[in-house]
C-alpha cells in the first residue's frame, strides 16, 4: 500500500511540467526515503533525477518499495485537472496495475479522483558517483532561463566557461556570435538574486542548447539554479525543491574530435 499526501499539490504539477518534455515514460520509485525517479531522454544525452523526501509530505505511507511506470504526458493531463491550491494524494496498491490521484480543494468542497493505468518500462539506471566539481555557479533561475532562451535564437550550442572573470555563456550561429558574462554578485538585497561562483579550476564545456532550454522548464520550482561543472563530466543543473528535495538534470557535453 502506498499513500502520499502533499498539501502543496502544485509542486507535483511543477515537477511534471519541468520534466515531461525531456522524458516520455518513467518509473517512479517509492521507498521509505521518498518518491524518486531517474530517467534518460531517448537519445541518452540527458538524464533527470528527482527526489521528494518522505519528510516533506503531510502523510507518507509506503509499506514496501514499489516502482510505478507512468507515461508523463498522460500524468500531466490528469494533473492539469487539479487546481493550483489543491491537496494531492497519490495512492496505489502493492502489485496493482493502476495508480490513483486524488485532488481535494482547500475548502474540501470538491474532491476528484483519477485512476491511471501503469505501464511496464524497461529503464536503464545509471550510477551517478558523487564528484568534486571544478566550478559551481549559483544564479537566479529566471536569469539562466533567459540566457538559454536568448542564445538559442542565435546558435545551437552553448560554451559555458568559468574563470576568475565570472561565468561566460557563448554561442555561434550563421548570423554571428554572442557572449554573455555573469560576474559574481553577492551585494544584492535578496539572496535569491545573487550570483555566486565557486571555482577550483577553470572550466570550459560545450552543450546542446536544446537540452538546456528543456531543463529550464523546471524554473518555477526554485528561484535559484545551481550549475556544477567539471571538464569531461556531464553538467548538473539543479533546481532545489524547498524542504523536500530536488530535480537534477545531467547533460553530456559535446566532445571535440
Amino acid at each position: 500500500m502506498l499513500e502520499l499526501r502533499l498539501v502543496q499539490g502544485s509542486l507535483f504539477k511543477k515537477v511534471l511540467d519541468g520534466i515531461k518534455d525531456l522524458v516520455n515514460d518513467a518509473n517512479f520509485d517509492c521507498s521509505s526515503t521518498g518518491f524518486s525517479l531517474q530517467a534518460m531522454d531517448s537519445s541518452h544525452v540527458a538524464l533527470v533525477a528527482l527526489l521528494l523526501r518522505s519528510e516533506g509530505f503531510e502523510h507518507y505511507r509506503c509499506d514496501r518499495n514499489i516502482s510505478m511506470g507512468m507515461n508523463l504526458s498522460n500524468m500531466a493531463k490528469m494533473f492539469k485537472c487539479a487546481g493550483n491550491d489543491d491537496i494531492i494524494t497519490i495512492k496505489a496498491d502493492d502489485g496493482g496495475d493502476t495508480v490513483t490521484f486524488m485532488f481535494e480543494s482547500p475548502t474540501q468542497d470538491k474532491i476528484s479522483d483519477f485512476e491511471m493505468k501503469l505501464m511496464s518500462i524497461d529503464s536503464e539506471h545509471l550510477g551517478i558517483p558523487e564528484a568534486e566539481y571544478h566550478a559551481i555557479v549559483k544564479m537566479p533561475s529566471s536569469e539562466f532561463a533567459r540566457i538559454c532562451r536568448d542564445l538559442s535564437t542565435i546558435g545551437d550550442t552553448v560554451v559555458i566557461s568559468v574563470s576568475k572573470e565570472g561565468v561566460k555563456f557563448t554561442t555561434k550561429g550563421d548570423i554571428g556570435i554572442a557572449n554573455i558574462v555573469c560576474r559574481q554578485n553577492t551585494s544584492v538585497d535578496k539572496p535569491e538574486e545573487a550570483t555566486v561562483i565557486e571555482m577550483n579550476e577553470p572550466v570550459s564545456l560545450t552543450f546542446a542548447l536544446r537540452y538546456m532550454n528543456s531543463f529550464t522548464k523546471a524554473t518555477p520550482l526554485s528561484n535559484i539554479v545551481t550549475i556544477s561543472l567539471s571538464n569531461e563530466l556531464p553538467v548538473v543543473v539543479e533546481y532545489k525543491i524547498a524542504e523536500m528535495g530536488y530535480v537534477r538534470f545531467y547533460l553530456a557535453p559535446k566532445i571535440e574530435e
Binding site: V45, L126, G127, T206, P234, Y250, A252, P253, K254, I255
Partner: peptide, 14 residues
C-alpha cells in the same frame, strides 16, 4: 568539429 557525448560514456549502468 564536435560530437554529442552520451551519458553511458561517463556513468556506469547499475
Amino acid at each position: 568539429k564536435s560530437s554529442q557525448g552520451r551519458l553511458e560514456s561517463f556513468f556506469k549502468r547499475t
